[in-house]
Structures are given as C-alpha cells and as structure tokens.
Design a protein around this nucleic acid. Structure first.
Lengths: 195, 195
DNA sequence: CGGCTACTATGACCGGTGTCATAGTCGATC
DNA sequence: GATCGACTATGACACCGGTCATAGTAGCCG
C-alpha cells in the first residue's frame, strides 16, 4: 500500500490501521504508531484529543472506506463481472498479499471487533466499517442481475466467508482456506443472477 | 457453560479461554484469569511455568477440542443429519448465546489468531484448534454422503463462514449475519450429498 | 515588531503488566 | 513427630502503557 505523501494526521491513521491489523488493538501502542508514521509523538494529542480510542476508531473507519472503494476497482478490472468473479477478486487481494509479504496481517476491522478493550465506540466503528463495505458489494450484485432481496444477503455471506477465511489462513499460514472459499462459493454466487 | 468442579488448573484454562474470547489476548491479564477462576495467584507460576504464553496456548487448544467434541453432540441431536442441518446447529449455538448473554464474546481461537502479540506458538495452537474442529466436521460430512474430496473443502468453508459471521454479528450486535449464512449456505451444503 | 495560532518536543505521572523470589501452609509418608 | 513434596501467599521488580503538563518552535497576520 501507499505510504507517506499525505499529511501527518492521515499517515498516523494509516499506520494505526497497519499496526492494528498486524498485532491487534491492545498490543498497538500510541508511541509505536507515531514512530511508524514518522510523526512526532506530540502530534498525537494534538490531532487526536480523544486519545487512543479516537485514533483506533478513525483507523477502523478508514479501513471500511478503503474496502468499499476497493470494490469499485475490482469491478472495473473485470471484463465480464459476475458475483463469483468479484468474490474471487476480493480474495485474490489477500492471497496476493500473503504470497508477497507473508501471513503477518489480517483485517483491521476484525482485529478491532475481537480486541474490544476500548469502549463501545470502537465496536460501532467496526459495524460502520462493515456497512461501508457491504453496501457497494450488494450494489454490485444487483447491477449484475441478482434480485434485490438476495443481494444484501449474499454480500453479507461474501464478507463473512472472506473474513473467516482470512482468519484461518493466518492461523494456518496457508491460503488454502481462501482458495477453497472461492472455489466452493463461486458457483453459488453466480447461480444467483436472475436468468 | 459449566464452571467449577474441576481442579484449579483446568478452571484457570477455562477462565482464560472465557476472558480471551471476551476481551482478546493482550487485554487479558494473568491476575484477572486467576481471579475469574477463583484460583490463587501463586498457582499460576506453579501450573504454568511457561508463563502467559503457555496458559493462552492451552486455552486455545482447549477451545479447539471443545468445538470438535461439540460436533458429535450436534449430530446426535439431529434426527435426519444433513450438512445444512449440522451447519445450522453450529450457528444456533452462537445465536442462542447471543440471545441469552448479549454479544459480549466471540471465538477464542479467532481472538488468539488476531491478537498474536505472543510468540508463534500461539499461532500454531490456533492452527491446531482449527484442525481439531475441522476434522470431525469433515468426517460427519462424509458420513452423510458427501464425496471425500469435497468434505474437507466444505468443512473449511463452514468454519470460515461461521467465524466470519460470528465476527460480524458481534460488531453489529445483530445475529443477522449468522442466520443469513445458514439460509444461504444450507442448500449448497445439502446439495453436496452424493445422490 | 508583537501577538496569535498551529504544531512540536519532552518529561513526568500513575496504573497495570508479566515475572521472579521468598516464605508459608498443608498433607501424606516414613 | 520429622521430612519432603505439592501447592499457596505475598511482595517486589522492572517495564511499558496512555495521558497530562509544560515549554518550545514556526509561520502567518496585523
């Protein structure tokens, strides 16, 4: 992913997401975030007066928006968009990363959901992130001809399965769960397009 | 779930799993585990000379064995066992818990995978737990008539989807993702039984 | 220049962490 | 009863976390 170039505030949010998805929320320190972003430590309390909770929440929301925008890019790259093809592209993002950088990181939204030592606001941020992710997926499905009442369900299923497969792949250090999910779920998704 | 009655060592492992799945690994303290298990603090270093890492690993392994044994019980309770019925039973365990106790806890194996501040041994324990969970599921599928080469894939898919749906349900405080997974994935699973 | 705002720099504080060291208790066995 | 092992109890240690407080700098505007 891209790094510097933006302002220090955006860099810190990005670095927080990066570290959270690698080590978890509680295990990620504020000083660590500042160092990773090459940002001064004093800027933390300036840009994030709400403390760690605010920083974590913004990182999670950022991740949700990022995943949502990513869907549009996947669609643009597909010649003949199908639900199964979209799902394969979403999973491929992870298999590519794992092949390149190792199984060191997961989804920051998942990390924030599991590691909810911070208050309830982080949970809400995670829910918002999932919503910001699911909406474009469901929209893409309807555009492909999936009936409206099933599009949201299938989008939920896609994200659920993807998250679980990411989790399992990390634990096993093997992308098998991701490829399996694509192989088994693809036909089901493609079969949902209105004839 | 059951509590006391066992020896203090087993109680501590159980309490660790309980707290981990609620708050995450890093956010769970050793003193906290001892207090939750009504066990003396001094027993920690006695029973777990390997420190927190050992305790966490044993908790994760315990969770994997628990999930594996649970599969057999689900099968016994089903009159006409089908893949979709098994999956529904696995998901119902979570919807029931969430309806009764609120969305306060997730899967300890997922927590250990995401919150991997502890060394690589915890990751291995998580992988072992997934294996101990997947094996009986795959075995059950073959017993129901699923071809051997697909049984393991579908078991992986079931666990992936379930884990992701648990995650999403917790974030959204809504069991929708779980019920959706059952509804959408059930027919696919049942269709895999050899005719 | 003076003043104001945005941002940076550092150090201190308090609470909590895992771990260690030491001493104490209990119970069985010889 | 004495001895030994298993287990418990408690305090101290070193460390790191987030946060606060205070001072410093840079740049713009009047």
């Amino acid at each position: 992913m891209k790094q510097a170039g933006r302002g220090p505030r955006e860099r810190m949010v990005f670095s927080a997401a990066q570290l959270i998805r690698r080590n978890g929320v509680t295990a990620t320190g504020m000083r660590e975030v500042a160092a990773h972003a090459d940002a001064p430590r004093g800027s933390l309390q300036h840009y994030f007066p709400g403390g760690k909770e605010q920083l974590v929440n913004e990182a999670v929301e950022w991740a949700g928006r990022y995943a949502g925008k990513r869907v549009a890019r996947f669609l643009a790259e597909l010649e003949h968009p199908t639900p199964g093809g979209l799902f394969a592209a979403m999973a491929a993002q992870w298999t590519d990363e794992y092949a390149a950088d190792g199984f060191t990181a997961g989804c920051p939204v998942a990390a924030a959901t599991v590691d909810c030592a911070t208050g309830d606001s982080t949970r809400q941020a995670a829910a918002a992130a999932f919503a910001a992710w699911r909406a474009p997926v469901a929209g893409a499905l309807t555009d492909m001809g999936v009936p409206a009442d099933r599009a949201d369900s299938l989008a939920t299923l896609m994200i659920s399965t993807l998250e679980g497969a990411i989790l399992m792949a990390r634990a096993e250090r093997d992308e098998r769960s991701l490829t399996t999910a694509v192989r088994e779920l693809g036909p089901l998704l493609d079969a949902a397009v209105r004839p």
